[in-house]
């Protein structure tokens, strides 16, 4: 069992929790993920590591309440325990030799972009952090973000905060203004990553994307997290996000396939979430 040390509700559906897991904290690197299970009947879900404190022995994650598992997790408070917490899994993000990069995050992806931006920034890389939110109500963690980069650019889909702009627009503006990035690191909803890659491909800027497909074991056994990379010569190769990723060359990812695979249990998730919510309501009564 793993203890929740702190819990911060960032927005009504976005939550940060810090979990006591000293061995994982000791090894965690930006870009890696964990797998957790809330209780005995719980499913195993992968969540990217948001932050870690090696001295305190804690690992932080940020999750969005979307299904039964995250709904159950939402009802765990500081001092409560979750059943399983495994990691660090996947490979750490590597951007060797880069002097100037853009780190692009959308929605909950911003939370994941944070450790990568922070690590690069601390190692002396010029980091432009470009983030996008739906509206002003879901803008989070700005103080932390600003400390983790050289320049910070934010936009909202509806213009209710700072300015109305998609991350693709913010990124292209910087490129056109002569940013001259060595590489772009991008994390967020699949559609956003796909369109960021469309922009960067135009300017031929190498782009690393952090994929988060559905997983079961997360250790290289079940093959659920497979995705297709298309090579320039027309051939394609199957990769497993849990052991080969989660970072991949964004220009090679077969986005349409990954988007479809990501929706495989969409209907189940909605139904389960509803059931769990009803159950919780009953218990409260």
């Amino acid at each position: 069992m793993y203890r929740i040390v702190t819990k911060k509700v960032l927005t009504p559906t976005l939550v940060l929790i810090e979990i006591e897991a000293p061995m994982i904290a000791k090894k965690a690197e930006p870009g890696q993920f964990i797998i957790l299970r809330v209780d005995e009947n719980g499913e195993r879900i992968p969540i990217t590591i948001h932050d870690f404190d090696r001295e305190k022995g804690t690992v932080s994650i940020i999750y969005q309440v979307v299904g039964a598992t995250t709904e159950k997790l939402f009802h765990k408070e500081e001092g409560d325990y979750i059943q399983d917490f495994v990691g660090p899994l996947g490979n750490a993000t590597e951007m060797p030799g880069c002097k100037k990069v853009a780190v692009v995050g959308g929605g909950v992806g911003t939370a994941i972009a944070f450790p990568v931006a922070k690590k690069l920034h601390e190692s002396g890389v010029h980091v432009d952090l470009i983030v996008g939110f739906r509206n002003k109500d879901v803008v989070v963690l700005e103080d932390e973000f600003k400390k983790a980069c050289t320049n910070y650019y934010v936009g909202t889909d509806d213009g209710s905060y700072v300015r109305k702009a998609l991350v693709t627009e913010l990124l292209e503006e910087q490129i056109n203004a002569g940013a001259n990035y060595d590489a772009v690191f991008c994390v967020g909803p699949m559609m956003m990553m796909k369109f960021v890659c469309k922009v960067t491909e135009k300017y031929n800027i190498p782009t690393v994307v952090s994929m988060s497909p559905i997983m079961v074991d997360g250790t290289g056994m079940c093959g659920c997290c497979r995705l297709t990379l298309k090579e320039a010569d027309g051939t394609s190769v199957t990769k497993f996000a849990c052991v080969d990723g989660p970072d991949f060359d964004g220009f090679k990812v077969d986005w349409d396939e990954s988007v479809k695979r990501g929706k495989m249990y969409g209907e189940w998730e909605r139904r389960k979430h509803e059931e769990t919510c009803n159950l919780v309501k009953k218990e409260v009564k």
């Binding site: 009947n41 719980g42 499913e43 195993r44 039964a68 598992t69 159950k72 079961v216 495989m264 249990y265 189940w268 998730e269 389960k272």
Partner: peptide, 8 residues
């Protein structure tokens, strides 16, 4: 019944 893990 009651398991959170989906299967088609």
């Amino acid at each position: 019944e009651g398991a959170d893990t989906p299967l088609m």
